[in-house]
Structures are given as C-alpha cells and as structure tokens.
Amino acid sequence: MGKAIDLMPGTLDLLILQTLVLGPAHGHTIAHAIGRQSDDVLQVEHGSLYPALHRLEDRKWIASFWGTSENNRRARYYRLTPAGRKQLTRETTRWDTLVTAVNRILKPAAGSGT
C-alpha cells in the first residue's frame, strides 16, 4: 500500500462515472473497481464513496435502484444516465486538457522545443 496516493479533489466523480460506463454496479463493486483498475495506486476510502454517489445522483448524472448482488445480497445499484454520459465526455476532455497542460509545464523538453 506504500505507493497508494490520495485522490485529487473532483477526480472521484470522474472515476465513478467511468466505472459505470461498463454497466450498473453497487458501491462495493465501484470501490473495488477503482482500486483494481488503477493497480491499487488510487486509494478511495470506501466510506467517502457514498457522499460522492449521493451528489452525482442529486445532479441526475447517475440513477439508483435496489437490486440483488451476485451472492444474493440486497445492494443499491447505480447506473449512468444519458446526462451522466455527456458529463463523462465533458469531464474526460477537461481532464485530458488539464493533464496535457500540466505535462507541458512539468516536462518542457518533451514538448515542441525551441
């Protein structure tokens, strides 16, 4: 766990939306998916996921329903709404722009040069 880093503010929303592109999932799955897909680099405190889910649902980017999990437990499932899909595209573009810009500053040599 030594190499785990905390999330930048605002990025959790993006990650949740991205996770849900693959299909509906409940909080437990989402938390583990974020950890797993980032090779455990990104550590989400699992409890803090829930306020984020609540906020996204409040903005109508995701919708929720109670369903039954793989091992027959009641769980609240979340799925992406069309608005959420659009938001994901927007956020991803913004993220890419941000990363490119920050990289340009951090590694000027790799850029177009003088």
């Binding site: 437990h28 829930y50 609540h54 091992n71 769980a75």
Partner: peptide
C-alpha cells in the same frame, strides 16, 4: 429518509465485503 437509505446501503457494503 435519505439518511436511512445511506445507512442501509453502507450496511450492504459491509455485508458484501464480509462475504
């Protein structure tokens, strides 16, 4: 009501993780 909903949701998380 929402608070109750979240509480149940987190209990469900604990159950799943316990499994």
């Amino acid at each position: 009501r929402w608070d109750d909903e979240r509480r149940r949701e987190m209990e469900s998380y604990v159950d799943l993780e316990t499994d």
